[in-house]
Design a protein around this nucleic acid. Structure first.
Lengths: 110, 110
DNA sequence: AAAAGTACTATGTATGACCAAGTACCTTAT
DNA sequence: ATAAGGTACTTGGTCATACATAGTACTTTT
């Protein structure tokens, strides 16, 4: 039981929310997301992001189209499906509630 | 992949933080915590809380003493060890960072 | 004594982040 | 042309943890 491990646990689920949110703002491919997540100190590695995208796609929340690139292999550009949009709305509420709940508890210091 | 499942994932890790925080405010036993967590809509059940407390105790973050009860079997009253206090401090920072990171991303709506 | 309630324990399942390689395709350098 | 390097994505495996479910042990109430 170390701190790093718990930090990983804290990120779970939140990551999914953040990724859906990034995609909701317009077409992006994996490296775009990785860049934004890293910039926000939401440390994520390839091995986490790609499987997550596949999972979300298989669940019908995302879809993608292949786009040729000038500097390398083609890329998968992701967008949200309607189902994905609804799901994201639900997650937004959950997240807000969670933050509030945590505040309620951690502000209870005597 | 349903919403409820993702909500569970979001709670993971945060729960540990909240529990440590509750204990940091003074001696409590499991039902006290359950009550406060439920009041904060941080839905938790016995089967989640007890193993978690045992895990934290085995990791050296918590200690307990048995206290007789007037209405039932004796109770384990928990307190934080020094190690637990340090751990909680680390978690506080992590949590604040996570909330900030998420804000950074979800406020980026164009 | 039996029933009901409280506090805690033990076992098993499912999910998802991360790791570590590996594949495939593209561009650039020699 | 061919080799080297980079980019984009895949795959298989491990580990931690929330939750479900069932069970133990002790207490008070009827």
């Amino acid at each position: 039981m170390n701190l790093e491990n718990t930090q990983v646990q804290m990120r779970k689920g939140i990551l999914e929310y953040c990724i859906l949110h990034i995609i909701s703002r317009g077409e992006v491919y994996a490296s775009d997301m990785l860049e934004e997540l890293t910039a926000a100190k939401m440390i994520v590695v390839e091995g986490t992001l790609y499987p997550l995208l596949t999972r979300l796609k298989n669940a019908g929340l995302l879809e993608y189209k292949w786009v040729e690139s000038k500097s390398g292999p083609p890329r998968k550009y992701y967008t949200l499906t309607n189902m994905g949009k609804n799901f994201l709305d639900g997650l937004s509420d959950t997240w807000k509630d969670l933050v509030l709940s945590t505040q309620k508890i951690t502000n209870n210091s005597k």
